[in-house]
């Protein structure tokens, strides 16, 4: 009906900028400012993520430096409890490592694994969604059937199974060195479906629009249409799902590590720390479990809150 309303000469970045400009017009900033809970969540998430990433710079001790760790300081309670040592504000673990430092390093591992797993889910899911939505036909049915079947099972079970199988294959070698990779793969693979579904449905919508038809008629290649026109239009929902999935991925990693099939004690994540602490719960050394636990809850809660808010602000229909 109308002429293509989009300048096809602008690249992906130009279109992406449009999307964010549109978000701006949706009063994203205004809605952010008017919600104190969201502001607090953003600050908490920001502080946790930044301090975790900067762990090597700001941690008071290096828990991996065996020279600085001494059994003399093992099992010290937090500094404010009787018997605490101000040098170890949150106490120490069984090997005398500073809890604050191990938590900082542990969060770093948790966040990096979570982010990498989400990136993997995102790439898998967006690719599957674009192909299914744009290609249609058999490819679409097969991909969506796989998605349906996978959705029948909780993600954690899929990740656990994936992890089990891969460790079984590598059972002869030392699986520790692959542990990081395996867990990212396991969590990434178990969470692609939501991305695929959302991208597929937006692709179907965009596909029917005049500007895409026009681009097709003028002989623009399918890949170019997908990347330049369709992909940018899916960014809003994808961003929302990615945020919510980050919380899920961090939880998933913690759970797997807690179950002992995730990261080994040599590369402790928050889940590993909680697992180790849990074994000494009855000895009264509560701080070994509680502090990593609280950090994990704060991290997941704040990311969840941000995700909820983004979803409501960008697209109230996406639920």
């Amino acid at each position: 009906m109308s002429a293509p309303d989009v300048d096809t000469t602008r690249g992906f970045l130009g279109r992406t900028r449009d999307i964010f400009a549109r978000m701006g017009r949706h009063d994203l900033w205004l809605s952010f400012r008017s919600k104190p809970v969201v502001i607090v969540a953003a600050i908490v998430a920001g502080v946790l993520i930044l301090s975790a990433l900067a762990a090597p710079l700001i941690a008071p001790h290096d828990p991996y430096d065996m020279a600085s760790v001494s059994l003399l300081y093992a099992e010290l309670p937090p500094a404010w409890v009787d018997g605490g040592d101000p040098a170890f504000p949150l106490g120490t673990d069984l090997q005398g490592r500073d809890m604050l430092s191990t938590i900082l390093y542990g969060s770093r591992t948790s966040i990096l694994v979570g982010a990498a797993a989400v990136a993997l889910s995102l790439v898998l899911g967006v690719a599957a969604g674009l192909v299914a939505g744009y290609g249609g036909g058999v490819v679409d049915s097969v991909l969506m059937r796989i998605a349906d079947i996978q959705l029948t099972f909780p993600a954690i079970l899929i990740a656990l199974l994936f992890d089990g199988v891969v460790s079984a294959i590598f059972s002869h070698g030392s699986s520790d060195q692959y542990a990081l990779l395996v867990i990212i793969l396991a969590i990434g693979v178990s969470n692609w479906v939501l991305f695929a579904r959302v991208v597929r449905s937006s692709t179907l919508v965009e596909k029917g629009k005049d500007y895409v038809k026009a681009a097709r008629v003028t002989g623009v290649s399918s890949l170019a249409i997908l990347l330049k026109h369709i992909l940018p239009n899916t960014l809003g929902p994808v961003l929302v799902i990615a945020t919510i999935n980050l919380a899920l991925a961090i939880l998933g990693e913690a759970t797997l590590s807690f179950l002992g099939v995730g990261l080994p004690p040599t590369q402790p994540s928050l889940g590993t720390l909680i697992r180790i602490g849990n074994e000494y719960l009855f000895s009264g050394a509560w701080w070994m479990t509680i502090f990593p636990g609280v950090t994990l809850i704060l991290l997941v809660l704040s990311v969840n809150l941000l995700g909820d808010w983004l979803r409501d602000a960008l697209n109230p229909k996406l639920r």
């Binding site: 919380a247 759970t255 889940g271 909680i274 849990n278 809660l301």
Partner: peptide, 9 residues
């Protein structure tokens, strides 16, 4: 936002 294992612990 609470992981199951942490609730249990």
């Amino acid at each position: 936002s609470m992981p199951t294992f942490l609730t249990g612990i």
